[in-house]
Write a protein that binds this DNA or RNA. Sequence first.
DNA 1: GTTGCTACCTGAGCG
DNA 2: CCGCTCAGGTAGCAA
Lengths: 195, 195
Amino acid sequence: AAAEVEKECMFDKVVTPSDTGKLNRLVIPKQHAEKYFPLDASSNDNGLLLDFEDSAGKPWRFRYSYWNSSQSYVMTKGWSRFVKETRLEAGDIVSFKRGVGEAARGRFFIDWRRRRGPDVVLPPPHHRGFNLLSVGSDGFACPDVNLLPILILMIRCRALFFLEIITLVLWAVWNTRNDVIFTGISPSLLMQAKV
Amino acid sequence: AAAEVEKECMFDKVVTPSDTGKLNRLVIPKQHAEKYFPLDASSNDNGLLLDFEDSAGKPWRFRYSYWNSSQSYVMTKGWSRFVKETRLEAGDIVSFKRGVGEAARGRFFIDWRRRRGPDVVLPPPHHRGFNLLSVGSDGFACPDVNLLPILILMIRCRALFFLEIITLVLWAVWNTRNDVIFTGISPSLLMQAKV
DNA sequence: GTTGCTACCTGAGCG
DNA sequence: CCGCTCAGGTAGCAA
């Protein structure tokens, strides 16, 4: 039934970790929200209930509203169930469509597909310390050829090594000055300190 | 203007690391909150917006409310901006005052000053991975004698060292498989890969 | 106590 | 540099 009516794609979204996580909401990019799901002042300011069908004809109902504080449009109630039952994961693509033609005009459809490519986690930009893998424009993962992160990692390693040494020295010096009871590591440094 | 009206101090608070950190809130000690910023049932249960002026006459607006879950009074919205713009740090002192006399009664003022004493960072307890310095009961810094953190640091260093090696190996292997253009480091590995 | 949901809030990134 | 967007949060409540 649902598979046979004529539809047109409104927009796709590559879902983020937040969209599939415990926040229980899907952010609808503002441009698409305002184009396809307008919230007039006349519509209830508590948001709307929107009905969708998936490709198997299964109905899904989401609460759709606007968050003033973040100035964003979201699907809330009903969304977490969708994530769970379709086992949606970050990086997967959700596709919003609407019916065209007399039989389906005004009906909404929702569909989803696995992300292409191997199982790659896309950390948020500010958490990207270093990546061994990146995602190319073709949607497939590839090793990150940007070598800067590797260099940074190496430098960090060296820095930590020095920190380790410095810590031990500081500790030894402190023991020397305060003549505290020896508590168990680095006997050689201690001996040296006590001379 | 603000500097010339008569004020009286309500209370000072030595701000904690949480007050200046990512929690974006200032806890108001309950005794002072209930005395000076009462939240009646009649007042909006969403909290209040309180306006303050600093000694330069600059206005600051904070959302002030009660958190049931922690049974504490807090300044939320607006507080993080205050922290940033005044470069407030843990240990600094924030002073809440109110106007007295006909010209200023009912107006609130806020002021801040640097902590006295040495430059000591007080990390929140659950972030204390390792400290080279602790703060003694006299308020002065002293080396931390807890050695566990040092051991953890050493282990971390070793782990990172292995990561570094693994990264280089992976990179070399990838170069081998894809025969990409050499981009600039580790000529020896590259040569090996190209053979 | 745990989960789902509403309504807030902020910072990073980007144009 | 400024303003917008939105990913990632929090508090509080209800079931």
